[in-house]
Design a protein around this nucleic acid. Structure first.
Length: 631
DNA sequence: GCAAGGTC
């Protein structure tokens, strides 16, 4: 059996889509070494498409370097990791080797980004090992649509090794620094009497640890915050149009009291300024992963990790587009009108969609384009009943959000009237603010943040208003709250920590390691996470500062552009982190003593709670993960 | 047993 070409995609869903776009009704589905494959006719030749599942190969240190007790972690900076097959990826290796013997041409139809390019080189390495004669071509498409796929297959490219090398360099550097610092922290804590549950360890990572630092930093800001008392004089006025409240703020209680007395004595005020301005509110820009996660946390009360896994499911069943994207600009090839037309009878929004379509629209436009994937949009119209039945209530919330967000991006601006009134009572000025939704626009479909109407009466300048009531409220300035997950995601994005697809993982890792917990959407450090972050900050701040990851990313990017070789960049980063390592080791006793205190507080506390029988859901789940890690 | 990055 022989194929004109074998097509390898990054995942099964894409392999299946390619087969149906190119093969139409001729597609035959079967399995190659247990991996789903699709055989079809295209341009007169028999083709086969097959999907892998992300990376197939990974880096690890050679066996003899994986004995934590007997290898000085410092040695890892001078040890080259080797490529190994990932656990669970053997079926793909076998399938690729089988297919390598059944064709002379392989089309690498992996995602259009550096990771996809790296996977392309993994595929080539595996297939070449059994058939060195194979010819490889690269299909580069940024959306899994018929037109994009056809275009990519007509303009096949050569694989780009620079792109792949960027990903491989990152893998090597991250493993080296992750493994060396994790081991030194874990081993030295144990030597200093630190006790932790079996199978657990003190991890360090170039993404997870700066994330922890951001969370701890906010806790310190809260503690350093100086609370101050202040006094608000609130006066209720009656105008010809109705009542409203205006207020003035005082730091000094006596001054507030004398102002109150004078207001009561005078009994009447004069409107000195009345502004009622209509302001246009623009709908959100097209949806990317991080924004979806952050809005789902705020509006739907879903954890980012859960949101992404639901979005993946909706994607794999064809309800929404690829959910891992940075892009907030619709590509010109995307048929927005066609997508919107699917929703003219959808939920309570259909009538408005029909109106928008009739009137014509210009979509909003953000600033980011990852040149690989379009923003997230719905690909199929579905009812609440259908989504809930197939995937559950939470999936409906996510799907509904994606649809409403998409519809909002093609909707009209809303108009909100911002209202400001200033009243003078004698010499004292009191202010009042209100607002009113004048034109709903996109809020007709985007129901999540509709501004609450709190209108003021339409008073006019010079109007006299009568004092109905006046009182003083004593208040205290409040420290900033703990970081919310939504803020944390925004900070990670700002500093370039992690990718859209992984940001939620870094939060989750910290939770699993008992470095912080998420309670009521807020990230609260544990004593362990706090001491770890602060001890590292005191000794080697570069190990925790959030700017460092962005700089690493910038250096790695020079590999992708061909400005620098992977060896140069990897060696430079190794020596940089080796210097950090040596500085840490100089004070490792100090650091580990601090950490041991944190360990005691976290794990003794857990033990006591467990004995008391109050095993929380989150904890029992993580404990299982720890066990799984143990061999 | 380490990381971060793919995907499920």
């Amino acid at each position: 059996m022989s194929y004109k070409a074998v097509i390898v995609a990054e995942k099964n869903s894409v392999a299946r889509a390619i087969a149906s776009f190119l093969g139409g009704s001729s597609v035959r589905r079967f399995r190659v070494e247990r991996v789903p494959a699709y055989e079809f006719l295209w341009e007169g030749g028999k083709h086969l498409s097959i999907g892998v599942s992300g990376h197939i190969l990974d880096f690890d240190f050679p066996e003899e370097y994986n004995k934590w007790e007997s290898v000085d972690p410092r040695v890892l900076f001078f040890t080259n990791p080797v490529l190994v097959t990932r656990e669970g990826a053997y079926i793909y290796v076998r399938a690729l080797k089988t297919l390598a013997r059944q064709t002379s041409t392989v089309i690498l139809a992996l995602d259009a980004d550096v990771e996809g390019e790296a996977i392309a080189f993994e595929v080539m390495r595996i297939m070449k090992s059994v058939n060195p004669e194979l010819e490889f071509r690269r299909a580069w498409f940024s959306a899994v649509t018929k037109s994009d796929i056809l275009e990519a297959f007509r303009k096949l490219r050569e694989p780009n090794e620079n792109l792949a090398n960027k990903a491989f360099a990152r893998m090597v550097v991250d493993l080296t620094i992750g493994a060396s610092f994790t081991r030194i922290l874990t081993l030295s804590a144990r030597r200093n009497g630190g006790v932790m549950p079996r199978g657990s360890f003190l991890s360090y990572g170039p993404c997870q640890t700066p994330v922890l630092y951001l969370v701890v930093k906010r806790e310190l800001e809260r503690e350093q915050f100086k609370k101050k008392k202040y006094y608000v004089l609130r006066v209720r006025f009656r105008s010809q149009e109705g009542v409203f409240t205006a207020s003035a703020t005082f730091e000094d209680q006596e001054k507030a009291k004398s102002a109150l007395d004078s207001v009561k004595r005078t009994g009447v005020g004069v409107v000195v300024s009345a502004e009622f301005n209509a302001v246009e509110v623009e709908p959100p820009v097209p949806l990317n992963t991080v924004y979806l996660e952050s809005r789902a946390s705020l509006f739907l009360n879903l954890r980012p990790k859960e949101t992404l896994s639901i979005a993946e499911k909706l994607y794999s069943f064809g309800y929404i587009s690829y959910p891992r994207t940075e892009t907030t600009i619709y590509p010109p090839t995307l048929n927005l009108r066609g997508i919107a037309s699917m929703f003219t009878r959808w939920e309570d929004a259909g009538w408005y969609v029909a109106k928008v379509l009739a009137k014509g629209f210009t979509p909003t436009r953000g600033r980011e384009d990852d040149k690989a994937h379009p923003p997230i949009y719905p690909t199929r119209s579905a009812s609440r009943e259908e989504i809930t039945r197939r995937f559950g209530e939470k999936a409906w919330k996510v799907y509904e959000y994606v649809v409403r967000h998409f519809l909002a991006t093609i909707s009209e601006n809303a108009v909100v009237e911002r209202q400001r009134v200033v009243v003078k009572v004698g010499e004292l000025s009191l202010q009042s603010e209100g607002r009113k939704l004048v034109y709903a626009g996109f809020y007709n479909v985007y129901k999540y943040s509709v501004p609450k109407d709190e209108p003021l009466p339409y008073v006019v300048e010079g109007e006299e208003v009568e004092v109905e009531d006046a009182k003083i409220e004593a208040r205290t300035t409040q420290p900033p709250p703990y970081l919310s997950e939504s803020e944390l995601l925004a900070l990670m994005k700002k500093y370039g920590i992690g990718t859209d697809a992984t940001m939620q993982e870094h939060i989750h890792t910290n939770i699993e390691r008992r470095y912080f917990v998420v309670k009521n959407k807020r990230c609260i450090p544990t004593p362990l996470g706090r001491t770890l972050a602060l001890a590292l900050y005191e000794t080697v701040p570069e190990l925790v500062l959030p700017e460092v990851r962005g700089k690493m990313e910038a250096s790695l990017s020079k590999i992708a552009t061909g400005e620098r070789t992977p060896e140069e960049v990897v060696n430079e980063m190794r020596s940089e982190f080796l210097e950090y390592y040596d500085r840490l080791v100089e004070r490792i006793d100090y650091v580990s003593k601090k950490i041991v205190e944190g360990l005691k507080m976290v794990f003794q506390d857990e033990k006591q709670q467990a004995r008391a029988g109050s095993v929380g859901e989150e904890r029992s789940r993580s404990t299982r993960t720890h066990r799984k890690g143990k061999k």
